[in-house]
């Protein structure tokens, strides 16, 4: 029994080390000066921050962070508003019509945006949506909505209908009762939607690289990708840039871990 426990611990620690490995290499690479050619496995003898300043300036990460922030914040706001509103009738009144609408919405989960890249790109040129915040935000919103609606409908299904009825007997219209009574109850699932959509939008590369090509509209991933090309020999700079880009989400995750994991699990198990 004791040796079995011992093996379990050993395996658990081995897995931890394996999965932390790339982050360790990222850290050592980004903290060593570019002239230090020692192995990436070795810790730096002296910490050097120059890679970070070079990456920050070279890739114009300051601008990219602002772009990322604006795009993520507005995408989230719209997804939460439209997603929760749409889920309410779809979950509460499962008429034939609404069931088909729900199925159509959920089915779009399997349409990867890349498959319609060519026509979408042309459409964006036609409507002057290229290199605009609203253009990329609406794309993020559209492709995040199926998952948000799926999660919201599942959650609304668990709220007793008696609540609606009581409110209506008190004279509230269904619209009022949604905004005053149901919406505040959706906080836990909203946290899940916020985290899932937020991470996805913040990390996005596909939409940004196609639809935000102007230099001052670049998001973090696009800025890093265009920084990577000419700097493959200055890998320490790219490493520092990658670390800076990954930091906000990682810190958020480490401090709010429970929210990330319980949200994911609840969404999945209900399914």
């Amino acid at each position: 029994m004791k040796t079995k426990k011992g093996i379990t611990y050993a395996v658990s620690i081995a897995i931890t080390l394996l999965h932390i490995l790339p982050f360790y290499l990222l850290l050592t690479t980004s903290l060593k000066p570019i002239t230090d050619l020692s192995s990436k496995w070795r810790l730096p003898t002296k910490i050097d921050w120059s890679n970070f300043t070079n990456a920050w300036e070279g890739a114009d990460l300051g601008r990219a962070f602002i772009n990322n922030f604006v795009i993520t914040a507005f995408s989230l706001l719209i997804v939460i508003l439209l997603g929760s509103c749409a889920a309410y009738p779809l979950s509460r009144f499962q008429t034939k019509l609404n069931k088909s609408v729900y199925t159509v919405i959920i089915a779009t989960l399997i349409v990867p945006p890349l498959t319609i890249l060519v026509p979408l790109y042309q459409f964006y040129i036609d409507i002057n949506g290229m290199n605009t915040y609203w253009g990329v935000i609406l794309l993020h919103v559209t492709f995040s909505l199926p998952m948000a609606i799926f999660l919201y409908s599942g959650f609304i299904g668990t709220i007793p209908r008696e609540l609606d009825e009581a409110a209506m007997i008190d004279g509230l219209s269904r619209f009022r009762l949604f905004f005053t009574i149901i919406l505040p109850l959706l906080k836990p699932i909203t946290a899940t939607v916020l985290i899932m959509t937020g991470i996805h939008v913040w990390n996005d590369y596909q939409f940004s690289v196609f639809f935000l090509q102007k230099v001052d509209m670049r998001t973090i991933t696009v800025a890093l990708a265009s920084f990577f090309g000419p700097n493959t020999n200055r890998i320490n700079w790219v490493a520092a840039g990658s670390l800076l880009a990954a930091l906000p989400a990682t810190l958020l995750y480490l401090f709010m871990q429970r929210w990330f994991i319980s949200g994911l699990a609840s969404g999945a198990v209900k399914g």
Binding site: T16, Y205, A246, Q257
Partner: peptide, 23 residues
Amino acid sequence: TRTIVYLPAIVSPLIMGYIWYFF
């Protein structure tokens, strides 16, 4: 262990690609 195993999912796939490029 759970925390660390799930951690890479938080990072942008493009950046995860670069990290492994260094490897």
